[in-house]
Amino acid sequence: MEIKLDDLSGSEMAALIMEHLAGMSLTSPPESVHALGLEELKKADVTVWSAWENGNLLGCGALKELDETHGEIKSMRTSAAHMRKGVARQLLKHIIDEARMRRYARLSLETGSMEAFYPAQKLYESFGFRYCLPFADYLEDPNSVFMTMELGAKEEE
């Protein structure tokens, strides 16, 4: 599996992001869907990676910079054709490694509270994420679960 920076110009990534948005809309009410569309993912404060194998897009994940010490995981999605192959685990490890390279003190995420999101919650827990209160601009929402991981204090330069 090769994980690479993605500029979101390819049709495969556009289709995967559409699959992601459609999936979120099926499981969450509109006011509780916090997934980013293509244009939002192209903003300067968001970095997107895609995972590939033999020319096939396996999945994607993104890191949004909330401030110089805090990042947020966004758009974690495995293609329906490649579920249960460890794609999300590899992407999550890559994003955590990048957050550490950026010397973030904390990495957080929002995911759904419904049963469909339990596998994602378990994956995040296995990496050391803990449940927390809403962060950034999020509000308490019975359809959302918030998780965070302390990465260590940002060192002074």
Rank of each mutant, 00 (worst) to 15 (best):
E39K: 09
S75F: 11
H34Q: 12
E155K: 04
L139N: 04
L16T: 04
G128Y: 00
V33K: 05
L92K: 08
T148Q: 14
K43I: 05
A62T: 11
H70R: 15
G55F: 10
E115M: 11
L107F: 06
H70M: 06
L91F: 04
G71W: 02
L92Q: 06
L41V: 12
R106M: 07
M114E: 15
D97A: 10
C60F: 01
S32T: 13
L139A: 02
E140N: 06
F117G: 06
A44H: 11
E40D: 13
K74R: 14
E2H: 00
E140Y: 08
C60W: 00
S75V: 10
E155P: 01
E157A: 08
T27M: 06
E39V: 07
E98S: 13
P142Q: 00
T111M: 14
G61F: 04
S11I: 03
P29F: 12
T47A: 11
E155C: 02
P142N: 09
V145D: 01
Q121F: 07
P30W: 03
K154L: 08
K43T: 13
Y104G: 01
M149W: 04
S9W: 00
M83T: 09
M18P: 02
M149P: 07
L21C: 08
C132V: 12
I95D: 03
V33R: 00
P134W: 03
E115C: 07
E157Y: 01
T69Q: 12
R89D: 11
M1I: 06
L92S: 05
E31G: 11
A81M: 14
F127S: 01
H70D: 09
G10Q: 14
Y138R: 12
E72Q: 14
K42H: 01
M1E: 12
E156P: 03
A15I: 04
K74T: 04
T69M: 05
S9G: 11
L21H: 08
M114G: 14
G61H: 00
W52Q: 03
E2M: 03
H82N: 10
K42N: 03
